[in-house]
């Protein structure tokens, strides 16, 4: 795999993958080994699409040692292992009361709401990065027929747990926030919950699919979550 490793300030290295089609899987594979190995002196790893930012503690290591470690780990980063990452099946309600862009999306994509939802739920998505907000997953894998524009003027407030699409990506808003992506549904639980030990539901490289549910099932799952009765591990296969 083709990777460029270079310093980025005095406490970080940036690894960028350059091959056209394999760049993102290669980056994800390296991230996987990096997190498993947890090399001495490395403080954080921030994967995002075709790059990984690695920061280090200069009291414990140096740029040249980190560089050597990364070169060694690249040998062991096999993209085919990405296929074994956990697969989430996330119950999602596409009721028009949550789908704030129900009407404009049908117009722009010339599709009925039912076929739009069906197309959206047929794809398997992959978390390429988490950012913008804590726990916001950038999901690749959107069907070409669902590519759509962002709003010209972003909404001042997108409700937390809204499922959204823009361009060729999908995402889920973890918190109420301003946002310009097109909203098509809602997840019954928070994507980011500061009370949990690992507060973000999703992690980079996770596989994600959406399972359509009706409004009453949405309400029931939300109630179970509030009472601590919902075991979301059952959403993973």
């Amino acid at each position: 795999m083709t990777a460029i490793i270079r310093p980025y300030g005095d406490t970080a290295a940036l690894i960028e993958f350059t091959s056209d089609d394999g760049a993102i899987p290669n980056a994800m594979a390296l991230n996987r080994v990096l997190r498993a190995e947890d090399p001495q002196g490395i403080v954080s790893t921030t994967p995002s699409y075709d790059s990984i930012l690695v920061t280090f503690d200069t009291a414990k290591t140096s740029y040249s040692k980190v560089h050597a470690t990364l070169v060694a780990l690249l040998e062991r980063a096999h993209p085919e292992l990405n296929a074994s990452e956990r697969l989430w099946s996330i119950p999602t309600c596409f009721d028009p009361s949550f789908a704030l862009d129900c009407e404009p999306l049908q117009r722009e994509l010339s599709m009925s709401w039912d076929s739009l939802v069906e197309t959206f739920c047929q794809s398997e998505y992959r978390v390429k990065a988490i950012g913008f907000l804590p726990g916001f997953p950038y999901l690749a894998g959107l069907a070409d027929t669902l590519r759509c524009s962002r709003m010209k003027t972003p909404r001042a407030r997108v409700p937390a747990s809204s499922v959204a699409i823009a361009g060729d990506q999908a995402g889920i808003y973890p918190l109420d926030s301003p946002g310009g992506w097109r909203i098509l549904g809602r997840v019954p639980i928070p994507l980011f919950n500061p009370e949990r030990q690992m507060p973000a539901l999703l992690a980079p490289n996770d596989r994600v699919s959406f399972l359509p549910i009706a409004l009453d099932a949405f309400t029931e799952l939300g109630r179970q979550w509030d009472h601590g009765d919902l075991d979301i591990r059952t959403w993973i296969s």
Binding site: S44, T46, P47, P134, P199
Partner: peptide, 11 residues
């Protein structure tokens, strides 16, 4: 919190 940047938490 430098260890949570991969899930989007600012340092």
């Amino acid at each position: 919190r430098p260890e949570y940047t991969h899930i989007g938490v600012p340092i």
